[in-house]
């Protein structure tokens, strides 16, 4: 069982600078050749004016705190028995090249069901204008309690 006293533990702020080629690399890795992710000339003809990040690119810029939870030496989760059980993203605006994202996160919940432990991380990503970009909620499941 994971000690409930860690509920509320915070991570960050973590800075992440959005790179043009990294955005493209992520979209290509996710099999998405949509021009708005890759082609600046096309993007200039749209309301966005430049290429935008694939929504799921939030896995890169809004979940780094979750990685810190997994490696947190105070909590020492049993990684051998841990799987990423569920994920939720909520987007409020798009990301563009050179945006500087600041992620702050916390352990939002810890609970048990049967012999499974659940640890929930919530990250909030804001851009350089302090606009909310994305909320990310990752649920990790640890077998064996």
């Amino acid at each position: 069982m994971v000690d409930h006293k860690w509920i509320g533990k915070t991570y960050g702020p973590l800075k992440y600078e959005i790179g043009r080629e990294k955005m493209r690399e992520y979209a290509a890795a996710a099999k998405d050749n949509r021009p708005i992710y890759h082609d600046e000339e096309f993007a200039k003809t749209t309301k966005y004016g430049d290429i935008i990040g694939m929504p799921n690119f939030a896995a890169v810029y809004a979940l780094r705190g979750a990685g810190m939870v997994l490696l947190d030496q105070e909590i020492k989760l049993n990684l051998a028995m841990l799987v990423h059980g569920a994920q939720e993203f909520e987007w409020f605006t798009v990301v563009k090249p050179n945006d500087v994202i600041t992620e702050t996160g916390k352990i939002a919940d810890i609970y048990e069901k049967g012999n499974l432990d659940f640890v929930v991380y919530e990250g909030e990503a804001r851009n350089q204008n302090d606009e909310l970009v994305c909320r990310a909620r990752a649920t990790f499941v640890i077998r064996g309690g």
């Binding site: 998405d32 939720e88 909520e90 987007w91 605006t93 798009v94």
Partner: peptide
Amino acid sequence: VDWIGDPGYLKKLSCQF
């Protein structure tokens, strides 16, 4: 997004693995 066309119109996505 292939269905809606505009990635900025995807507001929420969740699933269980």
